[in-house]
């Protein structure tokens, strides 16, 4: 199930970027997005480790490039959210696969399906909520326009970055 949802997310990210760039006339970037999606699927099949993060970065860059193009406000957040979900599920599947070791006699590897069913369901639910909320907020952010003074904007940006940094720092400290 995880594998199917992951592939769906990759295809969604790639398709959104491909169609978006194609409609905006930037074919080359569309082809690049399709290539990234294809590479991601192949990497999953072949079990190449450490490819998910660079590929997510690729989709993030494409979304950032496409968000200013005509229609980009719709598909760019979708591409980013789908890429983020695929990246998350890729990690989750890897974590389930890494549980073991299983005896040599047993086929395959990883945790027993019945034991992880509940975990998978909850993970998908959390990811769905987070992705949906993020997508809706991003679309809303693209739609809502209001003017801010430069100083106010800089101040808000500074506060946002500082707040996020502090939160991450404190969690890193606690985890250590």
């Amino acid at each position: 199930m995880i594998a199917r949802v992951t592939v769906f997310c990759i295809l969604l990210a790639a398709a959104a970027a491909l169609i978006g760039f194609a409609l905006a006339g930037a074919w080359q970037l569309g082809v690049l997005a399709a290539g990234l999606g294809g590479l991601w699927i192949v990497a999953r099949r072949k079990g190449w480790g450490g490819t998910a993060s660079p590929l997510l970065l690729g989709f993030l860059v494409l979304a950032a490039l496409g968000v200013t193009l005509p229609g980009g406000a719709i598909w760019a957040p979708l591409c980013l959210v789908a890429g983020l979900a695929a990246w998350d599920l890729d990690r989750f599947a890897g974590r389930l696969r890494g549980v073991g070791p299983r005896p040599a006699a047993a086929e395959g590897g990883g945790a027993a399906p019945d034991e992880t069913h509940d975990l998978t369901r909850r993970h998908l639910w959390r990811l769905g909520v987070v992705s949906g909320l993020g997508l809706v907020l991003s679309w809303a952010g693209q739609a809502i326009h209001f003017k801010l003074e430069l100083t106010v904007m800089l101040l808000l940006g500074f506060v946002a970055i500082l707040g996020l940094s502090r939160a991450v720092q404190s969690l890193v400290r606690e985890s250590d």
Binding site: A63, A64, V67, T68, G72, A73, A76, P77, L80, V81, L84, D88, V130, S131, L133, G134, L135, L137, S138, A140, G141, Q142, H145, M153, L154, G157, A160, I161, L164
Partner: peptide, 22 residues
């Protein structure tokens, strides 16, 4: 966020929202 703020591009800032929610 920094690029969005530096370039005064609200679309880029809005694009960070899914990441911030995550």
């Amino acid at each position: 966020l920094l690029i969005g703020l530096a370039s005064l591009n609200g679309a880029l800032v809005a694009l960070t929202l899914p990441l911030i929610v995550y």
